[in-house]
């Protein structure tokens, strides 16, 4: 039963990713991206990664949507007449996508004997999540702090208008 539920959600994930890509209005595409994040969160819960799922939900479905929405409102997207002109040839751009998907998946199934994955079976009992984040992977946390600091400097520098221009 668990597998069927997982398959259904995987299918929903692909469908909503396609929707994100093909919707005309940019703001609605961002909302579809948030839906994709929610479906990914549910998949991660099913597969047994609760902490990463919470992170994904709060950051990607929340913060990223807010960033996109503020960028869209600060920049002017084309009006409806201009979009209608561009949209005439729009769907023809997506003609190649099913062809490419079929070709690549065909290649993968033809070489299926070579696709048998071998993976590492873990015989040692692993650490708890807290130990891994805060003790084993110490250096990554330091790196993330520096990235956030750099991002803050970046936003301050990029969005500051000089008054004495």
């Amino acid at each position: 039963m668990n597998n069927t539920v997982l398959y259904i959600f995987l299918g929903l994930l692909v469908v909503s990713a396609l929707l994100t890509v093909m919707i005309k209005n940019t703001l609605k595409a961002v909302i579809a991206l948030a839906c994709t994040s929610v479906i990914l969160t549910i998949i991660m819960f099913i597969m047994g990664a609760p902490l990463a799922a919470i992170f994904e939900l709060s950051v990607c479905a929340g913060l990223v949507t807010a960033i996109f929405a503020s960028t869209i409102s600060l920049t002017d997207n084309p009006t409806d007449e201009e979009s209608a002109e561009k949209n005439k040839k729009r769907l023809s751009r997506y003609v190649f996508l099913p062809i490419i998907i079929v070709v690549i998946i065909g290649i993968m199934f033809i070489t299926k004997p070579a696709l048998d994955f071998t993976w590492f079976t873990n015989t040692v009992a692993e650490d708890t999540l807290q130990n891994t984040i805060w003790h084993v992977r110490n250096l990554d946390i330091a790196g993330q702090i520096v990235v956030i600091l750099a991002g803050v400097f970046g936003i301050v520098t990029l969005l500051k208008e000089r008054s004495k221009k």
Partner: peptide, 23 residues
């Protein structure tokens, strides 16, 4: 590989860095 702790750490780090790049 049953090493969910390391994988979750990687996912959390990746999400944080991606959001900074996006901003």
């Amino acid at each position: 590989t049953e090493q969910m702790a390391t994988a979750q750490t990687m996912v959390i780090t990746l999400i944080i860095i991606e959001v900074v790049i996006l901003a």
